[in-house]
Structure formats: C-alpha cells, structure tokens
Nucleic acid binder design. Structure first.
Lengths: 405, 405
DNA sequence: AGGTTTCGTCAACGATCTTTACTAAACGAT
DNA sequence: ATCGTTTAGTAAAGATCGTTGACGAAACCT
C-alpha cells in the first residue's frame, strides 16, 4: 500500500521546494530549480501552489544579479502557520510557538507545581498551552500541531507517557488530555522523549545540518540521547532508541534503579557529578528555582577548585566509555554534547574525547567528531514545536489538502 | 537534487510490484492491485513492462477462485537475471549464483590458499568468480551484479577492504580487481562486511521478514552484527555500524587488539570460547578443513561434558551484556543469533537471554525477542548475491533502462 | 442454462513535469 | 543613449503515467 501516483509526485515536490527554501534561505525560482533538479517552469508551478497555500511569500525583492534579469526572491512565509511546543521537566514547565520561518513567536517558562501530582502538573501545562495557542492566533497564525517533550519513555502511537523515573510518573495519557484542553485533533498532538527532541532541535534550529549523522547526548538528571541519521531522527521500534544513560560500563559498578549495574547515569548524571564534586545537591524537586546546584558547581569550576574539576573530568571519561559503545554500534560522524554537558564543556570535552577515541573500534578510519551544542536549555521545547514545523515544511499537503484560492 | 518526475513514479511502482511479487509469491494482477494500492489497469500496464523486461513470467496457471473468473498467475521470472555472491573468510572462499526467484543456481566452497597473501587469495577468488559467472551464463542468466562478503571494515564507495584483523589484510582494492577479472563495470561490484550481509540474507532468504527491526549477531573468529531497520540494512555513516565485538563490557578486562579493554570478542569470539571450554584450538589458518575445532566443541557439548557447557554459558552471559548495550541504543524488536552461535544455541540461548533482559532498560515495555538463525554458515555469501537480487527486485529499472522488445 | 462474480483490457481523462519558444529585465560595451 | 548579451519567468505543446468507467471473458452457483 505504498503506491505512488502522479499526485504523489506533486506532494513530494511541494515538500522538496519548501524545505529547500527553508534551509537555503531566500532564493529565486531559477536558483531553486538548479538546486533541486527541476525545471524553471516546474518550480514556477509549485511556487504558485505554495503561495496560494500561504506557505511561501514573494516580498518583491530581487536578487543582486551578476548579469541578466534578476530573479524575484521567494521566502518561507512565517505569517501563515506555526507549531506549539510544550515541555514537562522536573524543574519547570515550558511552552513556545515557532512559526514556519523558524522564528520563536512566544516562549514561556513556568515554575513547576509539584511534579509528584501528574494531574495538577498537566492541568497547569494545559493552561500554559492555551496561552501559547492564544498568542499564536493573536498573531494571525494557524496552529498546525502540538509537540510535547517528556523526560521518559513514551508510546508515540497512543500518546501515553509510559515511564518517567525522574518524575515518578507512569502510564499518563498526556496526548488525549492536551488535545481536549486545546480542542485540536488528538492526531495533531505528538509526544516524544526530550532527548530525541533536543537532538531534532539541533538539526532544525542549530548546527545539526553540518554534522552528518550524529548522536546528541543530553545530560540532565538522567542521561539520554537522540540519534539523527540521514537528516531524520531514528527512534527505534518503540521510540526508545538512544538510552545511553543505562549502558553498563562496569559489571561490578553500583546497582542502578533499572536493575543493571554500573549504568552511565550513575557516573555522569547531574546528581552523580554534583556528589562527586562535593557540591550540595538539594533535592531538585523541592526547589522552585531550577539549576540552583548546577550554578554552584559552575561557580566552583570557574573558581578553579580542584575537586569539582576532577569530578567532571572523571564523568567525562566514563561518559566517553559509554558513548564509545553507542558509536561502535551506530557509526555516526559526530557526537554532540548537550544539556548540562554543554555548560560543563570546558572541563568535560578533553577527557570525554580521549576516552571516546580510545574505546572506538573504527576510529582510525572514521574519526568521530565531538561538538558542543550551542542551543540553550530550551532545545527540547523548540524541538517539540519543530515537530510541526518540520512536518509542514517537508509535506505541505499534510496541513490542508487544498486551500481554495 | 531529489526531484521526482513522472518517470520516477513508474520506476517506483515497477519495484513495488516486483518486490511484492517476490515476497508474496505467485499472485494475479487483481490481487497485486488490491495489495499495493494500485488499480487493476495500472498493474496490468506495469506487469506488461516487467514481462517485457523478462523479470516476470506468466506461466499460464490460474488462481483456484472462489467465485468469478480466475486470475492469471504472475511469478518472478527466475530464468532472466541473477546475482553473484563471493566470500573471503579465514577458513575458505565461497561463491554462489542466486537468481531473481531466490533459487541458488550455483554454490561452491573452496579451501583457502594462504590468506596471508592477499594477492594469491584474490587470484583464486577471481578464478572461482569466473566459474560462477560461467555457470550463470550457461544457464541463460544475465549477471546483474556481484557482491563480496569480507571479514572486516570496507569502504563501500571505493571498494577497498580497509582493515581485516583476522585475515591480516589492510587497504586491499578488492572491487576493482574483481571487476577487471569478470569484465564488469566496477560500479556493479559491491563490497560489504560479512556480518552485514549475513543480516541481510536473513531478511531476503530467511525468517527476517517476521522479525521487525532486528540486530543479527554473527559469531565467528570475530563477533560482528548487522542492523536491519525498516526492512533495510543500517550501515552507518561509513558502513562500520554494528561492531558489537568491540563493545567493552569490563573496564578492567583483558586488553584487546583494538586498544580497548574487555571487548566482547575477548569473551565470546570463537577462540575465546574454545579456550575456556578446554578444546584444543589449532591455529585456524593452517588447517584446510574448516570448523575442525568447533566440531570438537560441539561433540564435547553433546557428550554432556560440564566444562564446555559452562564455558558456553558464560560466553552467552557476557554476550548478553554487550548486546544489551546495543539494544539500549537501537531499540530493536528482535536479536538474532547467527554464525557459530546458532550451532551453540542449545547451550547459549538461556544464559544469553537472561543476561540480555537483565541489562536492557526498556525491557518492561519492549521485550526484545531472541531468535536463532536457521540459515547455515553460507548466509554471508547468499547475502552477497542478494545485494544484486534485492536491488533488481526493488528497482528493476536499474538493471536496463529499457529492453527493446 | 442463466445469473453472478471476478478478472483483465481498452479508450478517454486528468494530473504532472519537460521541452521549446517567447517576453521581461538588468548589465555592459560602443 | 542604444544595442547586444545574459538570465528570469511564463505559456503552450508534448510526453508519461495512473485512474476512471465500460466491456468482454471465464469461472462458479443455483
């Protein structure tokens, strides 16, 4: 049931032109034609269609031509459609609105209510989500979909959060609840792991385009990773791929909550690092202010204190051993350090890279690059909004079958 | 440069119908139409095209219909085109010819000349390859391409074997040499790792179709694995994905040739198992007879001796820990034990499965199945031939632009 | 024997991209 | 200032492809 029809060709080429325009920026029809392999006439027809759908705009500017008639510039129309991104974390809730031109139109972080109560937290999340929706409509934007970033295992089919150890939640029906609160189709609410969405955000809003295939490692309370391969997230059969936090790096290591021994998270998770560094880690769930203890760790590191620096270095060494296993299995071009690791990078990257290289089999023929994420802590929310933005950019026909012109 | 044209639709649908026919077996046009989502008229047109290309035959049989006019059965035409598969291993060389109906038309195993001499070994391989080609043409088959299975890292772009530790080879230009010896286009000679090809063979000739996404672990002198995701091999950025043999499972374990410590191969490779079992392992390169020591191990196991059984059980436990890491990263439905592991299965599967489950994070929500390969030791050669068979089945137009009828 | 059901084909049709020719718009040399 | 050159965009014709709908063919059932 995978048959291609002539109309499928149009659908594909609509997405091809629109997403090309999104990554390359303002271009003329002729430039697009040369880049994607269609003829000028073909691009003209497709551009007219996209303009009719209000996904592309023609501001009237012209290319500063070398010789010959200058082209009329086409741009992605940011005023038409937007995606909503939501995030639930141990420390906070967040919401944002991102338009099709990838501009953030709304962004709000909300101190968490007690995460131990899923009901109250989700009620609060629905409230923030409605604020985001209202902000979008007030700016004349059509909401194309909603994405939710969650710190745990999700079932993308049913929209259920199966297991979030750091929240203490299990089997929470997040998607139906939000679909109800926002009055949108449940199929338009997509859930995913925050590590997966942070990795996607890197691709859509960060430097991911230059990294080839990559593994994006997010350090938070837990340690997760997202795998990007051929410009798309590899989610695995059940959406659980990238659980590097529970790779075992020592069969005689401490027992982990997951049942195994010596999991990466026991050495490289935020709490393990804080403990090893001798920085007081108040239980993060009881303080309203996020990152309190992490800020203290950073201050200690910048003050040049020895024990914290050594603790971070040891964590980097351990993380390198774990990630090397993932690299041996995946063969990616690049490993990206995100989350708290991006802030600890000056003290972490050296030991991490050494350890990674020493434990990667094919390193002589495929030296894995190590990069640090430049996206801030809001990578996951933006990635959640990006789910919709990316879907519309690659498949404009998914938004509306046809706009009556 | 990814534009779809109307002719691309035809190309896609040709492959859709032909590969559907290959997996489903003999079907009428109407059955195909209902299954793939095209109309009867569309399938008629495509079938006529495939018959003109001699890729599909219409033997004249009719479906035993319930009611109504019976359909005329279409089958994949095995008499038209075939792929050649070659394999270089420590113990032997092998060659086979597989036709489009997936029947093996020729199969030959050759005792190795001294593998320490790449030149002499490849001369011998070229000789065997010519025998395969001659067998194919003698049966009226057009050779669509050549695949080569090698025990090491290959660069699929240039056709170079980069590094084969167990052969002691490095930087050997295998593809150009064979293309020259067989007088075919170098682009028609594809190299790949034997673990990757064994995994593919499972998909094309074995039970792989029922396993969803899977990791196929091949036990040989080394330990390798192939990853199958969405019905296709995931090769990684450089074709090195699946190197589970060099996952470290103990940071204080023995040093491996790759530089790391405690690699899976040191616990679960053929030589490690033989040593732990107390079975004399003569250097495998000096004996012409393959599998000599493995046969002695199996005899000892079947005789009920304790030490070999315990050794295999321990290897299974260690392998489970390593593979659990891969499963945490990949999230596959199934793990398949192939190579020598399929023969050791009665003593290996239990400890392996227990260890795998204990060390897999998401096991409660996505219980990984464990299966044993039913393909024999010739999985890799058949997979090599399958490269061509699969390419032609999924993209018939790649074979010949158009056959003048 | 006649009705029913399903199969395969044919001709007309609509959708799509390409080809070819043409007009539009800017640059530069004379 | 003018004319030739170059490039951009468009319009019409052409080609390919799958769909639609009608029709004859071939089996089964009553």
């Amino acid at each position: 049931m995978n048959a291609t029809r002539p109309v499928g060709v149009r659908r594909h080429n609509l997405g091809l032109v629109l997403s090309h325009l999104a990554v390359t920026g303002p271009s003329s029809r002729a430039q697009i034609a040369a880049a994607v392999g269609l003829t000028k006439a073909g691009v003209s027809s497709i551009a007219a269609d996209l303009i009719a759908r209000r996904l592309v705009a023609e501001p009237g500017r012209r290319t500063a031509g070398e010789a010959g008639r200058p082209g009329s510039v086409l741009v992605v129309d940011g005023a038409g459609c937007a995606g909503i991104g939501l995030e639930v974390n141990v420390d906070y809730l967040a919401a944002c609105v991102v338009d099709l031109a990838r501009r953030t139109r709304f962004h709000r972080i909300d101190a968490a209510v007690d995460p131990r109560s899923p009901k109250r937290t989700l009620t609060r999340l629905a409230h923030v989500a409605r604020q985001a929706r209202d902000a979008a409509t007030a700016q004349g934007l059509t909401v194309g979909g909603v994405g939710v970033a969650l710190p745990g295992l999700v079932d993308p089919g049913t929209g259920v959060l199966l297991h979030a150890p750091n929240l203490g939640w299990h089997d929470v029906h997040v998607a139906p609840l939000l679909a109800d609160a926002l009055d949108v189709d449940a199929a338009r609410v997509e859930l995913d792991n925050e590590a997966n969405l942070a990795a996607s955000a890197e691709l859509w809003f960060g430097d991911g385009g230059a990294w080839g295939d990559y593994l994006h490692v997010s350090g938070e309370i837990g340690v997760g990773a997202g795998i990007v391969r051929d410009g798309a997230l590899a989610r695995g059969s059940h959406g659980f791929a990238g659980e590097v936090g529970h790779l075992s790096i020592d069969p005689r290591g401490p027992v982990c909550g997951c049942g195994a021994r010596g999991c990466v998270e026991r050495y490289c998770g935020q709490e393990a690092i804080l403990r090893a560094a001798g920085v007081d880690a108040r239980p993060t769930t009881s303080t309203g202010r996020p990152d309190g203890s992490l800020a203290r760790l950073l201050a200690a590191l910048e003050a040049g204190r020895v024990r914290p620096a050594r603790a971070v270095g040891r964590a980097g060494e351990a993380l390198g051993r774990g990630v090397a296993g993932a690299v041996n299995v995946l063969d990616v071009d690049t490993v990206v350090l995100g989350g708290i690791y991006s802030r600890l990078a000056p003290w972490l990257v050296g030991p991490f890279t050494d350890s990674l290289r020493r434990n990667t089999f094919a390193v002589r023929w495929a030296r894995t690059r190590v990069e640090v994420s430049r996206l801030g802590p809001d990578a996951a929310v933006r990635g959640a909004a990006g789910l919709t933005v990316h879907r519309v950019l690659t498949d404009p026909a998914s938004l509306s079958p046809l706009v009556a012109g």
